[in-house]
């Protein structure tokens, strides 16, 4: 069988015909509908889709937090039905521990693994530096901005050096400038560590800037609409955003996405007017 865009030779992560429904009877919502794609070792793949299309649901399934689904998510030969030690997750919502300082937040996974204090501080320090928070190590999350807190969560996930990095809209709370610069950091980390990464996002430029391939999702039910390979040269920095090729990719994917996004909008508008009509 010839390889198509959705298949790799030696995938680190395989999503195979995954279906997830919520509710029962007439109220069933199909959040993820027969999705299949894979992520190769060292590859950066983004999943993009409009709000409410089932991205976080997919994220939770791959992370092993939702074990009740059809189909298979596989790492190696293993079907995922519980959190897998090779996967590190960065959540969409703010997830730092407010009772711990930045460095103690980042060192937390190492503490669980029983890594000695001085080594764990060294390693935490390294990753805090990487996300640009070196001067805030002793600060508490309440003293940081939302974007800074998100960087703390990213460092906390990176510190245990997961084979597969799984992120759910990690930059959603950030402004465009920080987003681009942090994107550079992520690219750099990904290249340095040859980090297999799956990024969930609704941001087009972010997806094109960072990815080797982009999985475009449909809105309700959440299916794979198309998988686009991004052939922009690496090493890549945020400068790429200005290039013609970049604009081309963005336009192309937006073309696919526009239809889905407007269906999503229409859906929430009609829901709103139904609510208004009901009083």
């Amino acid at each position: 069988m010839a390889l198509n865009e959705s298949q790799s030779v030696n995938p680190a992560l395989v999503v195979d015909d995954v279906v997830k429904r919520f509710g029962r009877g007439d109220e069933v919502i199909t959040a993820v509908d027969h999705m299949s794609f894979d992520v190769a070792q060292g590859e950066f793949v983004s999943v993009i889709g409009p709000s409410g299309c089932g991205k976080s649901t997919l994220f939770n399934i791959i992370g092993g937090l939702l074990s009740d689904y059809e189909g298979a998510v596989k790492i190696g030969e293993e079907r995922i039905s519980a959190p897998h030690p090779a996967v590190g997750m960065v959540f969409q919502e703010e997830s730092t521990f407010p009772w711990r300082t930045v460095i103690d937040n980042v060192a937390f996974p190492l503490e669980l693994q029983g890594v000695g204090k001085s080594e764990r501080m060294d390693r935490a320090h390294h990753f805090i530096d990487m996300v640009g928070l070196a001067s805030f190590e002793k600060a508490f999350p309440s003293q940081l901005s939302g974007g800074m807190r998100q960087r703390v969560s990213i460092a906390r996930t990176l510190v245990s050096q997961p084979k597969i990095l799984l992120m759910d809209e990690p930059f959603a709370a950030l402004d465009e400038q920080t987003r681009l610069l942090l994107g550079d950091k992520i690219t750099q980390i990904q290249q340095e560590l040859n980090q297999t990464t799956l990024l969930i996002t609704h941001n087009l430029t972010e997806a094109v800037q960072l990815s080797d391939r982009i999985v475009v999702m449909t809105y309700r039910p959440g299916r794979v609409k198309r998988i686009v390979r991004i052939d922009l040269p690496r090493p890549r920095t945020s400068d790429v955003v200005g290039s013609d090729a970049f604009g081309h990719y963005v336009a192309e994917i937006w073309n696919d996405l526009r239809e889905e996004a407007s269906r999503g909008m229409a859906d929430s508008e009609s829901a709103a007017s139904r609510r208004a009509a009901h009083g």
Binding site: N60, G63, G64, L65, P83, P85, V87, G88, M89, F91, E93, E94, S95, F97, F108, P109, L112, S160
Partner: peptide
Amino acid sequence: TRPVLINVGRSLKMTSSQMFWKI
């Protein structure tokens, strides 16, 4: 306790006693 913090614990494969004392 915010569900996302519990999910962080689950994703780190914390035991239930770690989950209690640390989160």
